[in-house]
């Protein structure tokens, strides 16, 4: 049904970095709007079956997006993304973090830097998101928490995981 749009997920584990490249069938201004307006973010940011709820958002340098991803059973996972620099419609950088429902950042968990950039590919738009933790120790802490929470645990079989992550690269 949907067109097969290029998606790359690259892990540079020793540098505690993930790079996600994805092409979208939409003009850059529209894709930018979807990333920077809470009414639109609410419609896509949480992976199904979770839903997204925005408590507050100020999209400006020094502003923030305080939101929750909500499980079907009502369990809420709160986060706060702090915007550092904004350069419409080329990109923005932000610092993510786990928060509570009031927006207070959990100081015990590491934060990652997000560098999100938007470029044109004909009538399409390519979004590159680079997520970087300060150290592999920070990454390890977030991993340990993620495993305990099991929030995104939709893949159960190790064979499936192998298929996805260790897929041999055809190029280079």
């Amino acid at each position: 049904m949907k067109p097969d749009l290029p998606f790359d997920f690259d892990v540079d584990a020793p540098n505690a970095t993930m790079t996600i490249n994805r092409e979208f069938a939409g003009r850059r201004q529209m894709v930018w709007d979807c990333h920077t307006q809470s009414a639109l973010l609410n419609q896509w940011f949480a992976p199904r079956p979770l839903t997204t709820k925005t408590r507050s958002m100020e999209f400006r340098d020094g502003g923030h997006w305080h939101y929750a991803m909500i499980m079907p059973d009502g369990q809420e996972y709160w986060s706060r993304l702090d915007y550092v620099t904004i350069d419409p419609i080329d990109g923005y950088t932000a610092l993510d973090g786990f928060s509570d429902p009031t927006g207070a950042i959990n100081p015990d968990l590491p934060r990652a830097t997000w560098k999100v950039s938007f470029s044109e590919a004909g009538a399409h738009t390519v979004v590159r998101t680079i997520v970087t933790f300060a150290s592999t120790e920070d990454l390890e802490k977030v991993m340990a928490m993620g495993m305990k929470e099991g929030m995104t645990s939709t893949l159960e079989r190790l064979d499936d995981l192998l298929e996805i992550l260790t897929k041999p690269e055809m190029t280079s």
Partner: peptide, 26 residues
Amino acid sequence: LAAAERWFAEQRTLWSDRYDNLDTLL
């Protein structure tokens, strides 16, 4: 393998699913 692998695979799934939602919205 499971520990680190699983987390990265879950992150990949998270972004992939999230972007599928964005396709629908677009």
